[in-house]
């Protein structure tokens, strides 16, 4: 009788261990699968080295106000007085801030005096994202010089459509899928600059590199 009880207890423990093992393996497998699934979640983004600044981002987004906005890479900007991304060709000569002399149709570029040095005035150009419509006028103007202004899909606004309407309309295949945990991209030249800075223990550059998709 007691022998049968000992055998049953041993069997019970063995069965229990098997069940626990199977459940643990299942949980671990499910967890890993879930993690893998999360890592592969993608977002739409613009490869700034492929963008031609056609203006479709302003008109083809399914949102009333496009999720694509202009961004400024300050490490590429010359902080110029005569900014080709800020002024129209006429405005470059007059440097009048009347609306017709500004390139941006919504006056989304904010020009702020920074300093005067060596007889030159330097200005910082930032983007009012609420006003920006992603038309890329400034991107084309800036491309005449340093090219520090470029477009990015803003993921606090983008609804991440399965088929992005702008990507379909993009004439240069500039829309790419990137990982959801690093959904922004730098221009390749800016990536090089940031890597140089990060190599010299620049913490801001290191932090930025940790936030952007850096495949080349």
């Amino acid at each position: 009788m007691s022998g049968e009880q000992q055998t049953d207890r041993r069997g019970f423990l063995a069965d229990g261990a098997r069940v626990v093992g199977v459940v643990s393996a299942g949980v671990l497998g499910g967890y890993l699968a879930g993690q893998r699934g999360q890592a592969e979640e993608n977002r739409w983004q613009i490869d700034p080295d492929k963008c031609v600044g056609c203006g479709n981002c302003a008109t083809h987004c399914v949102l009333d106000e496009s999720a694509v906005k202009c961004v400024q890479c300050f490490d590429m900007c010359g902080f110029c007085n005569r900014c080709t991304g800020y002024y129209t060709l006429d405005g470059l000569d007059s440097r009048d801030t009347a609306a017709e002399d500004l390139l941006c149709p919504t006056e989304a570029i904010i020009r702020t005096f920074v300093e005067g040095k060596a007889g030159q005035n330097f200005y910082e150009y930032t983007i009012d994202t609420d006003a920006c419509i992603g038309c890329a006028m400034c991107v084309k103007g800036c491309a005449l010089m340093n090219g520090s202004l470029y477009l990015q899909v803003m993921h606090d606004r983008c609804v991440n459509c399965n088929e992005c309407a702008i990507a379909v309309a993009c004439p240069s295949d500039a829309f790419v899928n990137v990982s959801a945990d690093k959904p922004y991209r730098l221009k390749r030249i800016a990536l090089g600059v940031m890597r140089q800075k990060a190599g010299k223990s620049d913490t801001a550059a290191q932090k930025l590199l940790g936030q952007v998709h850096a495949d080349e």
Binding site: P48, V139, A143, K187
Partner: peptide
């Protein structure tokens, strides 16, 4: 090509 922001044009 003027104002084309792609590196091989703008640069």
């Amino acid at each position: 090509e003027l104002g084309d922001p792609r590196p091989h044009q703008a640069g």
